[in-house]
Design a protein around this nucleic acid. Structure first.
Length: 578
RNA sequence: GCCCUCGUAGCUCAGUGGAUAGAGCAUCCCCCUCCUAAGGGGAGGGUCACACGUUCGAUUCGUGUCGAGGGCGCCA
């Protein structure tokens, strides 16, 4: 296991405490809460009876998507219309009339449409986010809600039977971004890779390599029917023969298997490193057998009484826990089915102190979800019912030359993760995989990604960052001096849009982590970049008016910080030049 | 047949219990004597698959139908 991450882990704790004291990102959220509190007060003063309810009505403040509707909107008048037996607009009038004076809000709230109350913040409240960003810097947007609790994110978990393909790439990008997201929320995250290095697949791998060795040695041998036909098998065979001249025919089957697995694991590790994905732990399925955990798990399940013997096999009554049919645990030939080590593995997650675990899988494995959960419940060892959380990513359709490329290890047709990283670039590949909701299918057009890489959305976001760097460089002043800039000249629509978008960042990260939805970060970044580009084209930053210039530079400096922080969550670089 | 996910612009995809459903690409028209045009502004393009229900309000929630993908083996 790579030690680097393990060593860096303890550093999280002081960071948490530091940010707790600073509360860097609380500024704008407080605006929202303060507005809610004002309206709560107004509501109870206009309708005192509401306060007497056992569950008093709570004001909800939301952000309207249409900017013409102000910074915040309150829809309580609509929600209360029936209960109060009054027209929504009349209720809204009464609430607004009862509103206490406050320097938070500018002007009188509008009553619009069917009964929305639209609120505009005072400029001083709006710009508060900028100094908050400067103070928190790389920590802006983070939260301590996770309280340092342990969570494991298991992802990729490819069998060591071939190179990583595009599907693994999607899993790697999704899982790693999830891990980064949880870290922003103060969780103590461990990234884990589970190797299915036991069982029929490995046997099959060994047979495939062996067949190529025999071919090489001029022995007429049939290639295994379900064998792996990829070119990489031939290469492994060649290397095996070169490094083991005494066994050029591959008669030592165990040695061939070990060699092939080691070679493929090494390749996979290199690919993941190139993708900037690092694991804390690589867990070997084979160790579950050698450590006796599979046997132990089976014995425990039998003792708990959710098993039975039938047709010479041992069955687990997964139907007791919501599965649609019972599952065989031990086959009539005495070997275990794959889902037994799966359960044993998840038991170790719980026993290793992970109160929360997230398993990132391709959707083609979703069948294992109900079985593993059922198995954990049948263990009756206090594991919560929904353990572990699952994030499934849908299949990828790969297009090349206008035609679909069928991904098949056995047939040998392949687009590897390495191909994408080499041809499209790490940043673009990661961004592309994360920008789509993981449970919708995505089409990866290789030609488009390669030949028109400038159309890739990641450049749009990175360009915004680079543009800001360029402006600041031309200004040539001391960036630190912008920290205390007077922000009152920031009054345009573009400036207000940027301020509001940046103030949303902490909530966005919290929501993306809560929903286990990394793509929301990309959606956000793309939106923030668009606001910067619009601003750039509409206004000049390096203007004569010194006060205005410094205010604008402070604003884009803050924007650069938020872009950088967001890109870091997705694992994409923030270049200073492009 | 049963289970899971999805169905939103020509294409690839976001989004939401609320006000006029968005972006990129593609098509068309504009914008660099000016901080990077890898950019911006504008036009066209939609029965949010369909039906019924819940709701003051449904594209969003529920049920059903249709369509796409995946899973349903003593394979992993």
């Amino acid at each position: 296991m790579p030690p680097s991450r393990c060593h860096s882990r303890p550093a999280i704790i002081p960071v948490l405490f530091k940010s707790l004291f600073r509360m860097p990102s609380a500024a704008f959220i407080d605006n929202k809460r303060a507005v809610a509190a004002l309206f709560q007060q107004a509501l109870f003063s206009a309708y005192p009876a509401l306060q007497q309810d056992e569950a008093p009505f709570a004001i909800e403040v939301e952000k309207p998507k249409n900017p013409d509707h102000g910074h915040f909107a309150v829809n309580s008048a609509l929600q209360l219309a029936r209960k109060l037996g009054a027209k929504p607009r009349d209720i809204a009038e009464a609430i607004v009339a009862a509103l206490p004076a406050s320097d938070l809000i500018t002007g009188k709230p509008d009553i619009a449409g069917p009964g929305f109350i639209n609120i505009r913040l005072a400029a001083s409240a709006e710009t508060r986010v900028v100094p908050a960003i400067f103070a928190a810097a790389d920590e802006f947007g983070k939260s301590t809600d996770g309280a340092g609790k342990k969570v494991m994110v298991e992802f990729v978990s490819a069998n060591p039977t071939g190179p990583l393909h595009v599907g693994h790439g999607r899993g790697a990008a999704t899982g790693d971004t999830l891990a980064r997201l949880l870290e922003t929320q103060g969780w103590n995250v461990s990234r884990e890779f589970y190797y299915n290095d036991a069982g029929a697949q490995i046997n099959n791998l060994g047979l495939s390599v062996q067949a190529r060795l025999r071919e090489k040695a001029g022995i007429d041998a049939a290639f295994p029917e379900d064998g792996y036909r990829g070119q990489y098998i031939v290469e492994i065979a060649e290397r095996y023969a070169a490094e083991n001249p005494a066994d050029a025919k591959g008669e030592n089957f165990d040695a061939v298997c070990k060699f092939a697995v080691a070679a493929l694991r090494h390749e996979q590790d290199l690919d993941l490193k190139a993708f900037d994905v690092q694991f804390d732990v690589h867990y070997l399925e084979s160790s579950l057998y050698t450590d006796g955990l599979v046997e132990k798990t089976v014995e425990h399940l039998v003792r708990m009484g959710h098993t039975y013997e039938k047709d010479g096999a041992l069955w687990l009554k997964t139907t007791d826990y919501g599965d649609d049919k019972d599952r065989v645990m031990r086959k009539s030939d005495g070997t275990f089915t794959y889902f037994v080590p799966d359960i044993a593995y998840h038991v170790t997650k719980w026993e290793r102190g992970f109160g929360r675990a997230i398993t990132e899988l391709g959707a083609d494995h979703h069948g294992s979800l109900a079985r593993v959960r059922a198995g954990l419940q049948a263990m009756q060892m206090g594991v919560p019912q929904g353990y572990p959380d699952y994030v499934l990513h849908q299949m990828i359709t790969v297009m090349r030359g206008g035609e679909e490329v069928k991904i098949s290890k056995r047939a040998g047709s392949y687009v590897t993760l390495r191909d994408l990283i080499d041809e499209v670039g790490r940043d673009a590949t990661r961004y592309f995989f994360v920008m789509r909701k993981s449970d919708s299918q995505l089409t990866f057009d290789i030609d488009l990604a390669k030949s028109r890489s400038e159309d890739n959305p990641v450049y749009y976001v990175q360009y915004a960052h680079a543009r800001i760097c360029s402006v600041l460089a031309q200004w040539g002043g001391d960036v630190a001096s912008l920290r205390g800039a007077d922000l009152s000249p920031l009054t345009s629509k573009y400036e207000s849009d940027l301020l509001r978008a940046m103030a949303d960042f902490p909530e966005l990260l919290a929501a993306a982590a809560r929903e286990l939805a990394p793509h929301l970060v990309c959606v956000y970044l793309s939106d923030l970049a668009a606001k910067l580009h619009s601003y750039y084209n509409a206004e000049k930053f390096l203007v004569e008016d010194e006060k205005l210039k410094l205010a604008r530079l402070a604003l884009i400096l803050a924007t650069r910080q938020v872009l950088k922080n967001g890109l870091a969550v997705v694992g994409v670089s923030a270049p200073e030049k492009m």
